[in-house]
């Protein structure tokens, strides 16, 4: 089992509903966020193109945050979800330094926090909060090890990219382009 997310950049309008849903669902402390929206403009005026991307922890297969954690607080569970155990985290911040996506932050209680792919919902067979609220239905969540899952079919049909694959972390958030 390999959980992953695919985001259709052609359908995303950058409304930030996913950000708000995550904050409410996961009780994310005010002033912090586990996911965010990026607006990337490329080209030279007047030939410009714009892309919206909702970003979060990439739940990397070769997660550098898990590798550098001195206490095993950062760990990978079944399905490849990268989690932080608050009771094992000492707040050394090595994982924050190791993440090329800057997807982690220090929770006001002291431990490090990040996207969990809403594991508490996924375990019940539901989608992560961000995916389920998306008004344009541009986000897909599923098992890429299952060739018949919707996400696997999309990744076969559509062109996609991952962010900074050259960092070698094998990210699991795909952007359909």
């Amino acid at each position: 089992m390999r959980y992953a997310m695919a985001i259709d950049t052609k359908k995303c309008v950058g409304c930030s509903d996913c950000v708000v849903a995550c904050q409410v669902e996961n009780n994310v402390p005010i002033g912090h966020c586990r996911d965010w929206v990026i607006e990337a403009t490329s080209g030279t005026y007047p030939d410009l193109s714009m892309e919206f991307r909702t970003e979060r922890c990439n739940h990397c297969t070769d997660a550098p945050c898990v590798r550098c954690c001195p206490t095993e607080a950062s760990h990978i569970v079944d399905g490849g979800i990268v989690l932080v155990d608050a009771n094992e985290c000492i707040g050394c911040k090595a994982c924050i330094e190791s993440c090329p996506y800057d997807a982690r932050y220090i929770h006001p209680e002291g431990h490090v926090d990040k996207c969990t792919f809403c594991i508490h919902r996924v375990e019940k067979g539901e989608n992560p909060a961000c995916v389920s609220v998306c008004p344009t239905k541009c986000m897909y969540f599923g098992d890429t090890d299952d060739p018949n899952s919707e996400i696997s079919q999309l990744l076969r049909k559509r062109k996609w990219k991952t962010l900074i694959p050259e960092a070698g972390t094998k990210p699991n958030i795909y952007y359909l382009t």
Binding site: H32, C33, V37, I38, T41, T44, I96, D102, Y105
Partner: peptide
């Protein structure tokens, strides 16, 4: 190619706009 990135909705203390956790 010139790419300009605007991040909306992320302003985590000590991470944004510049990483300075140490």
């Amino acid at each position: 190619m010139i790419e300009e990135i605007i991040v909306s909705g992320r302003m985590n203390p000590e991470i944004d706009p510049y990483l300075h956790v140490w």
